[in-house]
Amino acid sequence: MWASFGFEFVNFYFIPGLVLGCIYALGAIGITLTFGILRFANFAHGEVMMTGAYFTWTISTLAGLWLGWSLHPLVAAIPAIFAAIGILMLIDRYFYKPFRNAPTIMVVMASFGMMLVVRSTVQFIWGPNQLTFVKGIDKPNEAVRQFTADLDLMILVPNKHFWIMAGTVIIMLCFTYLLERTRIGKAMRAVSDSPDLARVTGIDVEAVVRATWVVGGFCAVAAGVFLAMDIQFLETTMGFRMLLPMFAAAILGGIGRPFGAVFGGLIIGLAEELSAYPWIGDAPFISPGYKTGVAFTIMIIMLIVRPSGLFKGRTF
């Protein structure tokens, strides 16, 4: 039946892959920064995404109940971001900081434990059931469809995907400005490149650590909210399910390379969606049952062939 559309590859494989890639990319930024600056793989990162989305849901629900406002999720996400960053700071202070000078395994285990603590707390408070984030079906944007149909390139994109892609681009622009132009951004890059050198040149490493949590937390909540906007509901395992593909994205792009992580996220998102495209014949190229394996395979091949990633990140 797709013959009538003619443009199915872009509409049903490429754009969804790009949307998924945007979400992976935002999540991978936090992972790659923590990995580069604090030098550990933060397993609790997915839970920050999830918690941020739950905060956003709670804020918009309460605003609806008490004030009668219907907030757009992106508006409700702003206070949620502050709450999530606050929690990240507290976790860092009490659970990660004691291990700053200990072997990496300790803080990785601590982050694994935090993953459980945060998730089970959310499950206990909000319950394990799915929560409706946005009700209904978001049909493709009619204006775009009409316009592109006249050009014989019918593009079908729902509004939520425009929001997600535009949001990612805006966050990326702000982020570029932060890293390239501001003092703290430069300090972050310096610590990521060489922490010892940064320390002797008088950079306040703890301030850089705080900035890392702020930026990582911001991007993680944005990723969580975008994910919730796309799937339109919340569940407590939504963050954890994204974690390994986000690790894959961070490694693909090179550890400590935020732009690499964005690029890696887009590649992983596209690879997952395109793996099911019937490249040869009519059947999916790879059975969709193996879809999650695509990201891991890319990640492992990358680790073996070029552990520094596409953008020459750090290797330890």
Binding site: F35, L244, G293, F296, M299, I304, T315, F316
Partner: peptide, 22 residues
């Protein structure tokens, strides 16, 4: 994979365990 150091080996082995599961 053995020449990968600590965290990288960890991530690689998670991925391999997932692939075995799949």
């Amino acid at each position: 994979c053995i020449r990968l150091r600590a965290d990288y080996l960890a991530i690689a082995t998670i991925g391999i365990a997932e692939i075995i599961k799949l």
